[in-house]
C-alpha cells in the first residue's frame, strides 16, 4: 500500500534560486527555503523509490531531505507507521554547492 504522504525539508542559501522541484512529476513550491519542514497534503503513489526532479540556478549551498509516510487506502488513507527517509538522505548526493551540482534527477530508494 505505498500510497504516501510526503515531507521534505529544503535549505538553500539566499544566493540559490530554486528553479524547479518535482516529486513524482508533481511540482512543489516551498514557501520556506530556510529549512523548516513542509508538509503538503498531496497523496502520491510510490513503491520502492521516489522520483525527484530538482533544478537550481545561481550559486551557493543547498540541501534537501525527504521522508514519506505510508497511507492505508483500505482505511481512508490513514497513516501507517512513521516517517521513512530516502536511503540517500543526508549524503553528499543530497547536498552540494549549486556552482558544482545544481540538479537532482532520479528515482531514489525509500528506506521502508
Amino acid at each position: 500500500m505505498p500510497y504516501v504522504r510526503l515531507k521534505y525539508q529544503i535549505k538553500l542559501d539566499a544566493t540559490v534560486n530554486l528553479f524547479k522541484l518535482k516529486f513524482q512529476s508533481i511540482p512543489f513550491f516551498p514557501k520556506d527555503l530556510k529549512g523548516n519542514d513542509i508538509l503538503p497534503q498531496d497523496i502520491l503513489y510510490v513503491t520502492d523509490t521516489l522520483l525527484i526532479n530538482m533544478t537550481l540556478a545561481q550559486f551557493g549551498q543547498w540541501k534537501l531531505n525527504v521522508w514519506v509516510m505510508q497511507l492505508d487506502p483500505n482505511d481512508e488513507y490513514s497513516p501507517v507507521g512513521g516517517w521513512k527517509p530516502l536511503v540517500d538522505n543526508d549524503t553528499a548526493k543530497f547536498t552540494n554547492d549549486a556552482n558544482i551540482q545544481n540538479n537532482l534527477n532520479g528515482n531514489f530508494q525509500i528506506l521502508w
Partner: peptide
C-alpha cells in the same frame, strides 16, 4: 532565468514523469 541542460537529462526526466504518472494511476 535560463537553464541549459543536456538532452539526455530532459529525456530521462520526461520519461520518469510519464512513469510516475503511470505508476500513480496503476496504484489506484
Amino acid at each position: 532565468v535560463k537553464i541549459k541542460s543536456d538532452g539526455t537529462d530532459e529525456r530521462i526526466s520526461n520519461l520518469q514523469s510519464k512513469l510516475a504518472d503511470a505508476q500513480n494511476q496503476f496504484g489506484g
